[in-house]
Write a protein that binds this DNA or RNA. Sequence first.
DNA 1: AGACAGGGGAGTG
DNA 2: CACTCCCCTGTC
Length: 276
Amino acid sequence: MLPAGRISAPDFDLRTTLRSGQVFRFDERGDCFYLRVGDKIIRLRQEGERLEFLGCSGSFLRKLFQLDEDLEAVQKALSGDAVLRVAIETYPGLRLMRQEPWECLVSFICSQASNIPRIKRNIEGLCRLYGHPIHLDGFSSYSFPEPGTLRDEQAMRGVGVGFRAKYLVAVNDAAARLDLDSLRHKSYGEAKASLTELSGVGEKVADCVLLFSLGFSQAFPVDVWIKRAMEEYYFRGRKTPLRDIRQFAADHFGPNAGYAQQYLFHYARMRNRTDA
DNA sequence: AGACAGGGGAGTG
DNA sequence: CACTCCCCTGTC
């Protein structure tokens, strides 16, 4: 039987959180979201603080959206910064998710030098190639490819991932020996170093995996949006090397840098969005 | 219609 | 550090 039910989800905005660039496998149908995670389809709908769901358990969602994280404490700590205060007031229910590392890593390799509609197409294409069909409530999709299945570079190019196909093969090979989950117990620096050893994984993708799946809330992924926003707000509009931006974030936001990044990123992107 | 940038990274100099 | 290329797609 399909688990179904509802849970209380205070300080949580489902729509904003899903749209904030952490996950790509979801679609909106009316007031419902169909989110795919691994081999699950989850139907979600939020009304106020009530989160209704189908296709998983309540505890699964609590972990996925980190609903037991004290968001108010984090927000309070960051609100000393005038820029962040505005971003937090604008998107008060934006939370960081806790994804499965393999799916997260593959997804963000696909994301490099790309855009959201294309990223979604590419990931969905990989699922169609190497996953199996899954269904829920009239919605159909495919499960996420298991580690070890991303071997055929040419086939993956066929779904439009381009030069990223060779990186997917490399990460697929490495995942056999590298236990991603075990990185959780290392220091931030060591875990990041392990990830960037992989071909196709630079600092940005590594920080995304560390932040969105491995629980390193000090990770501060710097993409072009964050770079522009940081230069505008904290470097007087001056072009600034990535290294200096990362250092500033670590000094200025500390252990909550990841949340700062997420609020800044979403705020900056919504100000002049170019896609759906 | 051709150039160009788009939620990076690797390889050079 | 500052380049260039990498694939592909939508846009101007």
